[in-house]
Design a protein around this nucleic acid. Sequence first.
DNA 1: TCTAGAATGGCAAACGTTTTCCATCCCGTT
DNA 2: AACGGGATGGAAAACGTTTGCCATTCTAGA
Lengths: 358, 358
Amino acid sequence: MTATIREVAASARVSVATVSRVVSGSPHRVSEGTRNRVLAAVERLQYQPNLVARGLKKRVTHTIGLIVPDISNPFFPAIARGIEDVANRAGLAVLLCNTDEDLGKERSYLTLLRKRMVDGLIFATVGANTEHLRMLRRQHIPAVLIARAPDGVEIDAVLVDNRRGAREATEHLLRLGHQRIAFIGGPATVSPAKERHAGYRDALGGAGVRADPLLVVDGAFRAEGGAAAVGELLRRGVRFTAIIAGNDLMAIGAMEELRRRGRRLPEDVAVVGFDDIMFASLVEPPLTTVAQPTYRMGALAMERLLDLIGGGSRAPRRLVLDPQLVVRRSCGAGIERRPDVVRSNGDRIMKAEETAGT
Amino acid sequence: MTATIREVAASARVSVATVSRVVSGSPHRVSEGTRNRVLAAVERLQYQPNLVARGLKKRVTHTIGLIVPDISNPFFPAIARGIEDVANRAGLAVLLCNTDEDLGKERSYLTLLRKRMVDGLIFATVGANTEHLRMLRRQHIPAVLIARAPDGVEIDAVLVDNRRGAREATEHLLRLGHQRIAFIGGPATVSPAKERHAGYRDALGGAGVRADPLLVVDGAFRAEGGAAAVGELLRRGVRFTAIIAGNDLMAIGAMEELRRRGRRLPEDVAVVGFDDIMFASLVEPPLTTVAQPTYRMGALAMERLLDLIGGGSRAPRRLVLDPQLVVRRSCGAGIERRPDVVRSNGDRIMKAEETAGT
DNA sequence: TCTAGAATGGCAAACGTTTTCCATCCCGTT
DNA sequence: AACGGGATGGAAAACGTTTGCCATTCTAGA
């Protein structure tokens, strides 16, 4: 089908070793004349080195695995894009794996990726169970976690300061005069949900507002989860004038449900989300939310992974990025102001001067 | 690092050939006793066959390439998920490539994938230029196109009947009494944009309504494109009571711009989109749109690719799916009715009884 | 003219598999 | 007792590279 190094060697009347040396830019010097002969043969035969063979021999495949729960969840595509951009620039390819947060799938992908000799992998949002992560660590496969980093696993991670984000969002609502603020959070087992809940309590505590347990309800990190949570709040008959949601999908689901129940937004209920997915600005009213720099998180994770692959085997580091409160109209604040450091559609290029937090 | 077949052979006191035969389930029979010895050694050493070596030897990598313009464009994640689900079930892994519709990147990914010996590839939305697609065909690499299939390239494709979808959308608006219907389409060079425009004209012609060229404006397939197009329409001072947009992102951008200009939706202007991305139902008013079964398109493309890889080298086929008009409130029709055959979030499993169109 | 050593390029052994032959062994027939 | 043939498992040659080592050739200094 496609020419091999052997045929090139024959055509150029040199040994395969020589061909290898010129096409793979080995340090071994080869004279100008033969180099040109080889190059001519390469051109003539349209030779393309076989990367599988090379990978086998050199024990480096220039491939990484990207494990996400579900690429069609709008939180992940920008992360994936950030990863792919950096990976591509470094000559690595990205293998996409969807796990639905299922432990079995996570595990099977993990062994699959090992059998494929990937150079490293990125876990966007691991499930709660972590025993397979330890295995990963034992096998010295370079890896970076994104968005969740369970305690006790010694793996690099790129995170966002969820607690602080939720605190700032809650403080914003308090500043607007709200006292009865409901919190509809994600599943209580995952760390970001816990951290955001903690941030919410921090803010209430700081303002001397009583934290009413009736105002807190857990749910799935999806639109239906938000709708269901609102249903639960109303069923409890508890009074509230604002909601802070575990993420934007929940916020959007909550807004729909509130409207269906005849509440006006934001007059009757103010709503704040988390993530700043692309559509947060497009719903009506535009959603006030805590922005995570998803593209940048992907890019940073990939850069860190490149370090690790390159042998930088320093102690695992956690990179904690600062979230950004983006005030739009759903919280009832008059101003529509969007800080321009926040990820926008075009924000693909990493700006070097941006500080990366702690 | 990890055990090789050689070590297993030594540990089981058999030859590597025998180990290979038992772990790769070769047809060659091996006695119960030795099989067990081998299996025990495999277990003992935690042996995992090296897929790179196997790929090199068998000339099959169980990997496909997925080429998309931008995974963070909300049209693609569901497609990718459909592909990955089917691929994973068949034991193949998916390499993700973002091209930004840049011809250079498309080309370089193409040669990269070939060097990596992928078993096949899926092109979601090729750019306008097609010369590199011919190359692909020449090299007999199994491939399937999604959503766009330029004329003259003999490659399998999974498409949607854009013309019909746009016609039905326009007819719906006509039925609601609109006569001045603007069309804000995608870039005039890409086939779906052209087809949708044709469908729009079909409907007008069928109803005996004059097609006013002033009502047609092209733009980019993005929210800003829609906003800009609305700006252009207003600048022209042309009267219109409805807009049909090239895709949902444009429709959403158009809606935002209309509102900013003080138009009420849908009372002053009715809007219809195309695609039914996840957020079409979440904007306000919920967007009437022509649904493309994206998850299913991905799944079908992957199934077709599996056929091709399996040697089904029949003449290239084009699978044309029927789009579905989803009526919500943005068109001003009172009813909110969503046909349940349409892709919803949970619609991951392909329903066999669904007809696939022509 | 001789020789040391740099420059150049070839040989062959890997990398971890699969698979084609081929050699035994064992069994039942004649 | 000889033998044909099915079962079983081993040896070795691939797959397409890279790279350590060695053999030349060439240059320059004596």
